[in-house]
């Protein structure tokens, strides 16, 4: 292995890692918002909207991100909807992640027992107060591990955006292989970069998951 080459390439990887993280953060945040709204719509069975949410979730869950990105980036462009690759990537991640987050939130909401809801009602809480003080806090606690797993999943999925020419980690590695044939070096750095990004998050989540499980929320 060419260590000089590797150390010279590190700045490139740092720049690319910033792009990967940037996309992941925005993608995860928008997924959380979309997922939260969709889950509430489904949980409270809001007319018409819940049908739309259902269709969205099925479309999102049963198609690959890569195809979603190609459709957004190359397909829509030809209809006059020209989106930047960066916007497309976040849209794609949000479209994909929204359904995953929604299912995680939804499972949390469903885990709030009927008796909890009835007790809330019997002390005279309104629907809104019930949601705010009883349902959401409990649902959220149950959903945290799944939300975290989805966040990691989305961070990993960002590796696909290099296909629409965004300069993320994957893209840099491909570039180095293409230009200098330093395959092993480029890939070792790539793996290291992902490990540095993902390992701490993964360990932190395992810790959170344990804490949530011990909190004994929802019996």
């Amino acid at each position: 292995m060419d260590f000089n080459f590797m150390s010279a390439s590190i700045p490139l990887y740092i720049k690319a890692a910033k792009m990967t993280l940037d996309l992941a953060v925005w993608g995860i945040l928008s997924s959380l918002i979309i997922g939260f709204i969709c889950a509430l719509i489904g949980y409270y069975k809001i007319k018409i909207l819940d049908k739309i949410v259902r269709i969205y979730i099925e479309l999102s869950r049963n198609t690959p991100l890569l195809i979603q990105l190609f459709f957004l980036y190359y397909g829509l462009a030809k209809l006059g909807i020209k989106l930047e690759a960066y916007t497309c990537a976040i849209l794609g991640l949000a479209f994909l992640g929204g359904s995953y987050m929604s299912e995680a939130f939804r499972a949390g909401l469903e885990a709030v027992s009927k008796i909890q809801i009835e007790s809330g009602l019997s002390i005279g809480l309104t629907r809104w107060q019930l949601t705010r003080y009883i349902i959401l806090p409990q649902a959220f606690a149950v959903a945290v591990p799944a939300l975290g797993a989805n966040a990691i999943f989305l961070l990993k999925e960002t590796s696909v955006v290099s296909a629409i020419a965004l300069a993320d980690l994957m893209f840099v590695a491909k570039d180095l292989i293409g230009m200098y044939y330093k395959t092993t070096e480029a890939l070792v750095l790539l793996v290291l970069a992902y490990l540095i990004l993902l390992l701490p998050i993964s360990i932190f989540l395992t810790y959170i998951e344990r804490r949530v499980r011990h909190a004994g929320v929802g019996n």
Partner: peptide, 24 residues
């Protein structure tokens, strides 16, 4: 057909959906 990419990628999207959806 300048809009080819819309239709082709749309079609691929749909193809994946009709394979995966019944299974899920």
């Amino acid at each position: 057909t300048p809009t080819a990419s819309f239709w082709v990628y749309g079609c691929i999207f749909f193809l994946y959906f009709i394979i995966c959806y019944p299974v899920s």
